[in-house]
Design a protein around this nucleic acid. Sequence first.
DNA 1: GTGGCTGCAAAGCTTTTGCATGTTC
DNA 2: GAACATGCAAAAGCTTTGCAGCCAC
Lengths: 171, 171
Amino acid sequence: MRELRLLDRPWHERYSVQRLGEFVARCRKRGIAVTPQRLAVIQALLASENHPSTDEICAAVRRKHPHVSLATVHRILNEFCEAGEARKVTLLHDVARYDGNVEPHHHVVCVRCKRVHDIEMPDVEKLLEGTPSLGQFALLRCSLEIEALCKRCQIAEKRERTNRPHRAEMD
Amino acid sequence: MRELRLLDRPWHERYSVQRLGEFVARCRKRGIAVTPQRLAVIQALLASENHPSTDEICAAVRRKHPHVSLATVHRILNEFCEAGEARKVTLLHDVARYDGNVEPHHHVVCVRCKRVHDIEMPDVEKLLEGTPSLGQFALLRCSLEIEALCKRCQIAEKRERTNRPHRAEMD
DNA sequence: GTGGCTGCAAAGCTTTTGCATGTTC
DNA sequence: GAACATGCAAAAGCTTTGCAGCCAC
C-alpha cells in the first residue's frame, strides 16, 4: 500500500481558498450570522497548517481584531464543529482516559456518550510497514479510531430527531 | 479485509490476569516501589473494560481504600504511562485542537511536541466498507492517528539520551 | 427594531504542585 | 534509615456561563 503521503501546501492553499469563498453562502444557508469575529476565525483556521488550539486561533484573530474575546473564539469554534465548518481533532479531549491494554490495538468511540471499546484489526499495523518516515516525521506506531454510535445513543438520537422540531442537519 | 472485531471478555480476562501476575516483578525491574495505592490502581485499570478517566479509577480504588487521594491517582497513572503499564487513550487531550479540513483524512502526531500534520491515505476509509456495525456500535467513519517523532524532537531526544538526563527544554 | 452575538468577569472542571507526613526497601 | 510515595489543600490551566450592551439582518 503506497498511498500514504502528507497533504502538501498547494493542496491546502486551494482547499482554503475554496472554503473561504463558500463561507458566507454556507452561513446564510444555515441561518448563522456572518460577523467579523466569525470571518476572522474561519480565516485563521483555514490559514493554519498546524491544528490550532483555541488559544492559538484567538492570538491569530487578535492580530487584526485586538478586542476579540477568548470566550467568543471558544463559542465560535464549537458552532463551527456543529455546522461542519471545522472538525475537533481531539474527540475525547475533555478528560484523560487510560487503557490497561498496552498491546497494539484500536478503538471504537461513541461520538455521543464517548464510550470506548477496543478492537482488533491486525492488518492496520501493516499500513506503516515499508514507510519508516513521512516528511519530517519518523513513524512509531498507529492506531485507528473508529467513530460510531452505540446502541443506547442510536435510540436516544432517533427519539430526539422525531420529537424535536428538525433543524437542518446533515450527516 | 474481514479481520475487524471487538476484543471480547474472555480475551480481556486472560490478559488482565497475566498482567497483574507480572506487575510486582515489572515494578521491581523498573525500580518502582510497590505500594497499596499502585496495586489498587493497576487492578482497577485492568478490571475496567471501559477506558476509565482518572476520576473513575479513583472511585473504583476508593471502594477498598477510601482514603486514597485523587492527586495520587493522577500521579500513578502518569507514571504507569511512562513505565509502559498503561496507555493514555487521549494523546492530545490537554487542549482542544481544531482542523479546518473537513474532508476525510488522517493525522501524524508528534508524541513529544504534539505537532499534528494531515495525511492522505485513501485506502483507510475502505477498511469500514462492508462492516456497517460492530457489536452494539453503528460505525460512522474512521481516522488513523499515526504516532511519530518530528525532526526537531528526534534531535532533542537524541541529545537527551546521550547527554546526562537534563529536561530543561520546552517549546 | 429584534434576535442573536460579543466582551467581560466569574464560575466550573480537570490536572498539577508544594509540603509535611508516612511507607517501602 | 534514606529515599521515595502519599494526602491535603492550594494553584494553575482550559472551557463554559451569566449578563449587559452591540450589531447583523
